[in-house]
Write a protein that binds this DNA or RNA. Structure first.
Lengths: 151, 151
DNA sequence: CTAGACCCTAGAGTCGGGTCTAGATCAACA
DNA sequence: TGTTGATCTAGACCCGACTCTAGGGTCTAG
């Protein structure tokens, strides 16, 4: 069940360019083999790894860190502690990201709700306009727009 | 209560370079005023906006999208629906990110737990080694390493 | 009066992560 | 047989978001 680079691209969602690039960057667990004519052959398991890779990437792990991990794997047994440490570090990192995003969501939801209210009431014209000539008492100052805390 | 660019940099966590860059990119709600000698003066409310800006950035909103938003604000009232739409779009985006990160976390926790188990049991040497000469029955194939689903 | 801290502009450089191009090879089909 | 279409390599290019440099001004303290 050999796969061409095109098939792998389709099934992994990465471009053929990206696949070649990843290979150059040493991101494959097992070196990509070639047909006698030089063309790459991949296998199902490469797709599995690419799926993980993609997840790691989309969670902000750099290619450099992925390479580090896969290098440890290629070195074989004996460095499990290091692998574990690396994984834990990224896990912490992702957890921190989630917390940050949740905070941002609080802010966003707050702002969205306020806009919804005012748009719904049709009062929108008199609000949220820091520099309108008519600003006066009715419009909110810029720092209203900029409030950070959702409460 | 005027603030110099240096003070704003300190208090916002952005570099003076970044502040000038943001200004060029049109990311300030109200245009940054200058002293007669050309130096920028900022105010407290700019810090508020910068704090939001930073949150938006760290949640993956591009400078281009932030500029779009702030341009709507500068245009004054009448475009609240557009602002709302823009905010909602980003909110959806952040929510999707959180879901993705949660999935990634499932994978990571799973892998971490397995590594912990095996490191703890001191059996680590016989596992996780796709290419070791000794591989045989004891070691896990690469696709074990690459499993995606945590269950 | 001068040193040092801070600021200015325009524009070049950097970095990560790809993406694309040129020029060549090769297989299959009409 | 010639034309697709997929692949190959090396290396150039791109984009976003800064970051830094050069060359200069300004302010304050000693």
């Amino acid at each position: 069940m050999d796969l061409s680079i095109g098939e792998v691209a389709q099934r992994s969602g990465l471009s053929v360019h990206a696949l070649r690039f990843y290979e150059r960057e040493g991101l494959f667990a097992n070196p990509v083999r070639r047909l006698s004519n030089g063309r790459r052959i991949y296998h199902e398991e490469d797709l599995g790894w690419l799926a993980i890779c993609t997840k790691l990437r989309s969670s902000g792990m750099s290619l450099a860190m992925i390479r580090q991990y896969i290098e440890l794997v290629r070195q074989g047994p004996g460095n499990e502690r290091e692998r574990l440490e690396l994984l834990r570090r990224h896990q912490d990192h992702v957890e921190a990201q989630v917390r940050e995003l949740q905070e941002t969501l609080d802010v966003m939801r707050h702002k969205v709700r306020i806009y919804e209210d005012h748009v719904a009431r049709g009062e929108a014209d008199r609000l949220w306009n820091p520099s309108h000539p008519d600003a006066g008492a009715c419009s909110e100052p810029v720092d209203r727009l900029c409030e950070v805390a959702p409460s």
